Computed example of a mutant assay.
Amino acid sequence: MLNNKVAIIFTGGTISMKIDPRINAAIPALSSEEIMAMVTNIEKFTNIEIINFSNLPSPHITPEIMMDLSSLVKKTVDRHDITGVVITHGTDTLEETAYLLDLTIDSKKPIVVVGAMRNSSELGYDGSSNLSAAICTAISKNAQNKGVLVVMNNEVNSAAEVTKTNTLSLNTFKSPELGPLGIVDNDEVIFYRDILQKQYINTETIETKVALVKCGPGIGSDIFDFYINNGYKGIVIEALGRGNVPPTMVKGIKKAIDENIPVVMVSRCPTGRVLDTYGYEGGGKHLKNLNVIFANNIPGQKARIKLMLILSITNNINTIKNYFKN
């Protein structure tokens, strides 16, 4: 008799979609039971408990919904009869949800987020194979104490490191800086390395009024006036290169900081950290002197999620800086 149980929380996404012939486009259609029926022989490995959370495309997932999901995952993973938790999710915002779960849940049990790049009407539907790999990961003792994991295309990545890199490819989820933690091979999880560190933000709420601004040549400060006037509590900038902005943006950045709105900076480059290398107007050194917060090497979408969580518990600039050092 099997002595483990995996809870699978279904939230929607391409993994639960098929083509509607009336509009010739993919829509949410499959039930959780229909999806599980395609995961053959899984009963030989573990007992399954299905939890229906939602059936939403991932662009419909909001930060508030992510927090509701986090609360459900916490309650589920705390149960003595649960070995691990798998969450199905659409891939467009999968990395944000996985990262939020990673930051807000403190558990040694495996928590795995999974999705699909092809809907069930397409040849080569990858939903069932991805889900089976995720379940194999969730029952592995080797997957304990590794934070939230993302399993796609038989690769295991840390939620803190992974990002969606391609609009179509089955291997779209990658960790550009360090590579995957491991693989799923012949129903066995093999880890090549451990996570670097695990950060925990103890909060049950989230501050949603956090903006994300992408930097480009000649962009000015008007957008900062909009966010300041509309009560935004934080701003994340995807800066150029090593962490620099056009001089036309500096006025807006300074105004936001003077209004006690924390401004966090990442690079728009796919890899590499931001640093105060350049001393010209709008350069990293100038921005650091203005009290811009450097977010190391995470992408803008993750920095925004992190700042949302931090602002739910503090707006102290030094405390926020300490969170972003890790």
Rank of each mutant, 00 (worst) to 15 (best):
N47A: 09
I82F: 07
L131P: 05
T104C: 08
T88G: 08
D92N: 15
A143K: 02
Y125R: 04
N142T: 14
V77Q: 04
H80I: 14
I48S: 09
S31A: 11
L30P: 02
I135N: 06
N142C: 07
K146D: 00
N47Q: 13
G124C: 01
T97S: 15
V39C: 11
V112Y: 04
T93P: 03
S140Q: 08
E34G: 12
T76N: 10
D106G: 05
L149Q: 09
I23K: 14
S129Y: 01
L72T: 13
C136I: 09
V85T: 07
A138D: 00
N52K: 09
N130P: 10
M67Q: 05
T104W: 08
D78P: 07
A159K: 02
T93R: 05
G90A: 11
L123C: 07
F45N: 14
A143Q: 10
A25W: 05
V85E: 10
D92K: 10
L30E: 09
T91K: 10
K74S: 12
I51N: 05
K44D: 13
L131T: 02
T163Q: 12
L69W: 00
A29D: 15
S31V: 11
D106M: 14
F45A: 13
L94T: 03
A116H: 09
S71F: 12
L149V: 10
I50F: 02
S31Q: 12
T88R: 06
I35K: 00
I51D: 01
S31Y: 13
E43S: 15
E34H: 11
I42A: 03
E49A: 04
T40W: 08
M36P: 00
D102K: 04
G90M: 09
L131A: 03
V151T: 08
G147L: 01
M152L: 14
M67H: 06
S140N: 07
E95L: 04
A138V: 06
S158L: 02
E34P: 06
V150H: 08
E43V: 00
V151L: 03
N55G: 00
T104P: 06
V113M: 13
P63E: 05
M36C: 12
C136Q: 13
R118L: 08
P110I: 09
T46C: 09
A134Y: 10
V151P: 04
E161I: 00
M67E: 07
L30F: 14
T104S: 13
T88V: 07
R22E: 15
E155H: 05
L56N: 08
G124N: 00
K74I: 01
T91F: 12
D68S: 13
N157S: 10
N52A: 04
N119A: 04
A159R: 05
L56I: 10
L100Q: 11
K74C: 11
L94N: 11
N142D: 15
E161L: 11
V150A: 05
S107R: 10
C136W: 12
I65T: 08
T76D: 10
S132G: 12
I35Y: 07
S71G: 07
V73A: 01
V113L: 12
K75H: 13
K75Y: 09
T137K: 04
Y125P: 03
N119Q: 03
I135P: 02
L72G: 00
N52L: 01
K109L: 11
A26S: 15
K109Q: 07
T91P: 12
P110T: 04
N41I: 02
